[in-house]
């Protein structure tokens, strides 16, 4: 074996082990398990897990609800953080830019559990907001801010939005200021500059960020479970229940597979519509 070949196999084998054992085989297993019926030891394939999904309204309705929420939170994350990304790359004094960018990273690094817990403290009946409003004499009884769809949405937005901001900032950094200056000199309004120059240039970042945000929200369990209400409808909770409470793994596998299909389909559509490739998402 020549030295080059040796190096090639030295690199290839660990990578193959990773991909085959931890990515490819488990997903095939997920697919196969979803066609098996719990308690039935015969290896016959059955569609039962999927028919249950479509027959029980609670399942498909939760599924639909989750997908729509994930799309909504993704759009919201764009609207909320795009001005911030633009400000940090194009407007703020460069002195402060790196400091403020670092501030964006801190909640990400601290992690979801801690920040979601922070929102429990803020939104609860004796939380920061209710106690402040009481102290100011605006309310007598606490507002119902926690354990509903409002608090769930805040949590989902908070834990995902920075994954939109950072790729958008990367694309905006590569936008030459003189393009904006030229457009402005030629009399373009702010709105026109925004629509015709800034958005098209930032599009790859917006799509990358949108894909990551969507995937994080649709697969999240912590924010819906901790901040959402008792009767809230979130699909990953159904998957968790099947795996960790009722131990019907095959049913859970079918739910998991459906979640994988819908998230891949939405991501694929986003890539098609924007003419991008998956290879670019990570960069």
């Amino acid at each position: 074996m020549s030295g080059n070949k040796k190096a090639f196999y030295f690199l290839l084998i660990p990578v193959l082990l990773w991909l085959v054992l931890l990515i490819i085989i488990p997903h095939i297993d997920l697919f196969i398990s979803s066609f098996k019926v719990d308690g039935d030891s015969s290896s016959a394939f059955s569609l039962e897990n999927y028919t249950i999904f479509f027959e029980e309204k609670i399942y498909w309705f939760t599924f639909l609800n989750t997908v729509l929420y994930a799309i909504g939170i993704t759009l919201l994350a764009f609207v909320v953080t795009f001005p911030v990304a633009f400000y940090l790359t194009k407007v703020v004094d460069r002195k402060y830019a790196s400091f403020l960018t670092l501030m964006l990273l801190i909640p990400l690094w601290v992690g979801e559990l801690v920040t979601i817990y922070g929102w429990v403290i803020i939104l609860g009946d004796h939380g920061v907001i209710n106690e402040s409003l009481k102290w100011l004499g605006i309310i007598d009884k606490p507002l119902p801010l926690l354990y509903n769809n409002f608090s769930m949405s805040i949590g989902l937005l908070y834990m995902s939005m920075l994954f939109m901001t950072i790729p958008v900032m990367t694309t905006l950094e590569s936008l030459d200021d003189s393009l904006i200056e030229a457009a402005s000199d030629l009399g373009a309004s702010k709105f026109t500059i925004f629509r015709r120059i800034i958005i098209p240039h930032a599009m790859p970042g917006i799509v990358n960020g949108g894909i990551i945000v969507f995937m994080l929200v649709i697969g999240d369990y912590v924010a819906p479970n901790i901040l959402g209400g008792k009767s809230n409808l979130w699909f990953t909770e159904q998957i968790y229940n099947q795996f960790l409470s009722t131990f019907n793994w095959n049913q859970g596998a079918a739910f998991g597979f459906l979640l994988l299909v819908i998230s891949s389909a939405v991501i694929w559509m986003a890539l098609k519509l924007s003419g991008q490739k998956l290879e670019k998402v990570g960069s």
Partner: peptide, 26 residues
């Protein structure tokens, strides 16, 4: 192979968790 290597970027963490649990217990 590259496609599989970057796929975890867009696979929800729950799915990785349950599918690895399924195959390892198998």
């Amino acid at each position: 192979l590259y496609f599989f290597a970057i796929a975890p970027l867009v696979i929800p963490g729950v799915i990785l968790g349950i599918s690895i649990l399924l195959s390892s217990s198998y």
